[in-house]
Amino acid sequence: MLMSLENLLSDKRSKIIKKWRDVIVETYPGDTQRFLRKEKDQFANPVGYVIAKEIETLYDELIKEGGIDKISACLDNIIRVRAVQDFRPSSAIGFVLQLKMVIREELGDKAPMNGLSGEFRALEDRIDNVALLAFDIYSKCRQEIYEIRVKEVKNHLGKLLKQANLTIEIPEEKPDL
C-alpha cells in the first residue's frame, strides 16, 4: 500500500528537521554555528533554542495543515530575532522556502512519483504561503522597531518642552471668547 505524503514526512521528521535546522544555523558565521548547535540551555543560548524548538512545531503544523495562529506564533519567535540581526530581509526569512529543498533532498525521487505529486504540490504551496506570512511578520517586526524609535524621540522631546513650560496644551473644551 502506498504511504501518504504526511506519513512519509512523519517518518522522516527528525532527519528533515535536523537538516532544516542546519540550513538556518549555517546562515550564521562559522564560530557562531558551533555555539548555536552545542549549547542547549535556553537561557545561555536563546537563539539556538528558539530555532530548534520553533521549527519542530512549525514542521508538524505544516505537514498536517495546522492552524495559522500557531504557525504565525512560531514564525514570530524566530523572525523577531532575525529581524534585529545582521541579515538582509531575504536571508532573514529565506529559511521557510529552504524547507522545500530540504524535503526534496530527503525524500529523493519518491515524492513526485507514487501518486503523491498532487499532495506534494499542495505541501509546496503551503510552504509558499508560510513564506508570505513570514514576510508579513518580518515587516511587522521592523515596523515595531521604527515605532519604538519614534516613540522614544517623541517622549523625550515632548515631555521636556512641556516640563519647561515651553508649550501649552490645547484645553479639552474650547473656551468661550
Binding site: T32, E39, V47, V84
Partner: peptide
C-alpha cells in the same frame, strides 16, 4: 568568555565574543 556576552548571544557576530 566567548559565549557569555549578551551581544554575542543576541547577535551571533563572533567579534562580539569578549575574547575576540
Amino acid at each position: 568568555c566567548a559565549d557569555k556576552c549578551h551581544f554575542f548571544i543576541g547577535s551571533g557576530d563572533p567579534k562580539n565574543m569578549p575574547v575576540l
